[in-house]
Design a protein around this nucleic acid. Structure first.
Lengths: 154, 154
DNA sequence: TTACGTGCAAACGTTTTGCACAAAC
DNA sequence: GTTTGTGCAAAACGTTTGCACGTAA
């Protein structure tokens, strides 16, 4: 079961001024396949399983370049491991604290729907005087269906 | 300018079943002083500046123990460095993306006050079927007053 | 006196770098 | 033919561990 390199991947690389080399095609194809959030180590495992090999230096070098050119977003998981995301539209993460799995969450309507309780119900002041807020990061930490099931079995 | 070890720190350690050794007192005194969110490396720098020295092994060993006993909370900063927080009450972080400074934020009223725009205004489904959400993590990323000023000067 | 804490140096896992060869343009 | 990418091995970095000695109870 070989990995499929969609022509759109080659295009995407060229559009961002990057040569469409095998390493880059493989990395993008892997991450975009199921919108995964792999660590570099996990990528190598996945690629090996697909019969593809890539040196770790090449992997890191290309991840850095893909982030630099805006094709991937680098972020930090709960345990401090670097992970990469091809989803550039605003979204949050739902993280399994048991197995580390991460899935994307697009929030609907109002954040209050899923964050109903204010952290401090007392009346407030602005966040912090003098600070400019440019971004917010919201992660939901929980237990994924697979891990929930395992807990019930024990 | 010596660091001040408040008797309450000794008490706090004993109350949690930990011997009040110099290393532990120093770590707690440093972090509690200004409610800082230091990395281990930063702690050593600060302690050196105060004329105190601590081996890096002792620092890591004690941070792990203090987290284990619930005196500190370990978390991961934007860049993947481990940081430690003595504030155990629910709060969020306001992070300067320029200098990395972190300050605590206690949110008032409703999260919508500071997160007015929903990520996706379309009507929604539940977050993800089958997942149990046990916690949420919210960080505000921005520019602190000091860094804002520097930008204006250039 | 016994249990626990400290510091050194070595080990470890992850990420980065220098460099020769290979591929893309 | 020039520029850029790849892979190997070595280095760098943050964190952890083994162990002898020191300190707290």
């Amino acid at each position: 079961m070989k990995i499929q390199i969609d022509p759109s991947i080659t295009e995407e690389l060229q559009r961002h001024g990057l040569r469409p080399t095998r390493a880059r095609q493989l990395i993008l194809a892997l991450i975009e396949k199921d919108n995964q959030h792999y660590t570099p180590e996990e990528m190598l495992v996945q690629l090996n399983a697909l019969g593809e090999r890539l040196s770790i230096a090449t992997l890191y070098q290309n991840l850095a370049k893909l982030v630099d050119k805006g094709l991937l977003v680098k972020f930090v998981g709960l345990d401090g491991e670097y992970r990469y995301d091809c989803n550039k539209t605003p979204h949050h993460h739902l993280i399994c604290r048991s197995c580390g799995r991460i899935v994307d969450v697009v929030v609907k309507q109002s954040l209050d729907t899923i964050m109903p309780r204010p952290v401090d119900p007392r009346a407030g002041q602005p966040l912090q005087p003098g600070w400019k807020i440019v971004q917010r990061r919201v992660d939901f930490i929980g237990v994924c269906p697979d891990c929930s099931q395992q807990t019930e079995e024990n």
